[in-house]
Design a binder for these strands. Structure first.
Lengths: 241, 241
DNA sequence: ATAATACACGAACATACGTTCTGTGTCAAG
DNA sequence: CTTGACACAGAACGTATGTTCGTGTATTAT
C-alpha cells in the first residue's frame, strides 16, 4: 500500500546503500540480521518490514524463504565518493547489457525484389550478421519480430533512405495509419518504403520526403505489406554520391 | 594436496557450470543441497568435499558457515548445449558492454542557429541526455569528440535528414573531400549538412540527395565547419509528415 | 596382502536465517 | 476521545543450510 511519503525514507536509503555495498564487496547478500545491525535495528521483523516495502518499490527482489537471496535492482550509493562513482559506472554498464538488442541482419532490400525475411524465429545467432542497437533508441517497446536490412541502391531515396543505410523493421502483415511500411507493389513489381494511410476507397502511400507526392492504390490486393519500419541507421562513410 | 589428476574431473566441471549458471540466473549462489541435486549427489558432505577442492584450486571462494556465500572466481560455461548457448549469450552481452559507447546528446540542430557544442570533454554524464550506440555500427574507429544532435525542423531534408532524426557528429574544424560535414554559412546565416569537396578555387557543398544541385562557396572564410557527420539515426514513429 | 587414498552415502547436529505473532508507543484523522 | 495506520521490539517457530562423523567401497600404491 501507499506509504506516507512515496519517496524513500532515511531508513530505506541506508538499507539500499548497505545492500549495494555489501553485494559489491562480498559477492552475496547480507542476512536479515546483518541488515538490522547495519542500520541499528534490533528486530528482524522490522527489517523484513522494510524489505517488503523496498520490494514493492521495485528496488530489490528476493526469493521466499531463501537466505541471502536479495537482488538489488537499483544500486544506491552513499554520498558521491570515488568508489560510488565507479560502482555507478559499473551499474550503468550492467544496464546497458539489458538495454542492448541484437537484431539479425536478414539481407539486403532492393527495389526490384521482394524483401528477404528472417527464416525462423529462433534465428541463428550469427554475430557476423547482426546489428546491435540500444533499446533506448528503439521507439517500439515490443522487441519481437525485429530484423534489419541493408538498403541496396538509390531506389528508396524518396523515403529519405540511401544506399548502404540499415533499416530495422518489424514483421507485419497489416499496418495502422501513419506507420512507415515496406510494401511490395504487384503492378509496379517493386518494393518501396512509404507511410501508410488507409483512406475510404483506396490506400495512400506517402513518401517520407514531403516534397514528393503520394501514390494511390485502389486495389488492396495488389499491395503486400512486408513489415513496419522501426528505425533507419545511416553510417556516413566518407564517400559521396 | 594434489589430487590424482590435477585437472578438473567431470564432477568439478559440472559443479562449476552449475555455480556459474545459477549465479547468473538468480543473482545469488545455490545451497549445498541444490548443488548436490544438480550433479546427482545425495550427500551434502560430498558436495562440501568437492567445494573444498574447488576452493583450493582457486576456482571459487566461500565464507565459513554462511549460506550461499560462494563466489565464482572463474566462470565455466558448458560445451555447446542449450545452457551453454545461454552462457555464451551472456558472455557476448558482456562483450557488448565494451562495445557500447555513450554519446552525449548536446542539443538540437536547427538551420537558423549555429550548432551547440558539448561544453567540456569531461562531459557531464547525464543518462537522460545521451545516446547509446554499438561501436560495431560506427564507421569511425576514433571514438573521441563524438556528440549527438537531434534535428529540429525540415531544413536538413536535402541531406535526407528529417525532423526528429539524431545525427552523431565528430568535432572538426576541417574536412576531407567526400566527408559529410555540418557547416555554418555566414552569408546565408544558416547551418546545413552537406558533402564537402574542395575544388581549385572554391568549395563545393553537395547535398546528399543526388537530385539536388550543389552549393558553391568562393570565400572559404564565410564557411565554418562545425563537425563531420558520422551517423544518422531515424527513429520512425508512427507519425508522418 | 596391506595400507593409503579417493570417492561416496546418510544420519546427526548446531545454528544461521526467514517468517510470524504479540505487544507497545506515536501521531494524525475522524 | 477513539480509531487506525505506522514504526518498532522481542520472542517463538520452523526450516534451510553448513558442518561433522561414522561407515563403506573401489582404486592405487607399497
Amino acid at each position: 500500500m501507499a506509504r506516507r511519503s512515496q519517496g524513500l525514507s532515511e531508513r530505506h536509503h541506508k538499507i539500499m546503500e548497505f545492500l549495494t555495498k555489501f553485494q559489491e564487496t562480498n559477492g552475496y547478500s547480507p542476512s536479515i540480521r546483518q541488515i538490522g545491525d547495519s542500520i541499528g535495528v534490533k528486530s528482524t521483523s522490522l527489517v523484513d518490514y522494510y524489505l517488503n516495502q523496498l520490494q514493492e518499490m521495485a528496488l530489490i527482489e528476493r526469493e521466499d524463504r531463501i537466505s541471502r537471496s536479495i537482488r538489488v535492482l537499483q544500486p544506491v550509493y552513499a554520498t558521491p565518493t570515488i568508489t560510488g562513482m565507479v560502482g555507478d559506472a559499473v551499474h550503468k554498464a550492467g544496464n546497458m547489457i539489458a538495454d542492448m538488442i541484437s537484431i539479425p541482419l536478414a539481407g539486403r532490400i532492393v527495389a526490384s525484389a521482394p524483401i528477404p525475411m528472417p527464416t525462423s524465429d529462433l534465428s541463428y545467432y550469427d554475430a557476423e550478421s547482426s546489428v546491435d542497437i540500444a533499446r533506448s533508441l528503439l521507439p517500439a517497446h515490443d522487441i519481437s519480430d525485429l530484423f534489419a536490412l541493408e538498403v541496396s541502391g538509390d531506389s528508396m531515396i524518396d523515403a529519405m533512405i540511401n544506399d548502404g543505410d540499415i533499416v530495422v523493421m518489424k514483421k507485419a502483415q497489416s499496418a495502422n495509419n501513419g506507420e512507415m511500411v515496406a510494401v511490395w507493389l504487384d503492378d509496379k513489381d517493386e518494393t518501396t518504403l512509404k507511410y501508410f494511410y488507409k483512406e475510404p476507397n483506396r490506400i495512400r502511400l506517402q513518401p517520407a520526403n514531403p516534397n514528393m507526392g503520394p501514390i494511390y492504390v485502389d486495389n488492396p490486393k495488389s499491395l503486400r505489406i512486408m513489415g513496419k519500419v522501426v528505425m533507419v541507421i545511416r553510417q556516413v562513410k566518407s564517400v559521396a554520391a
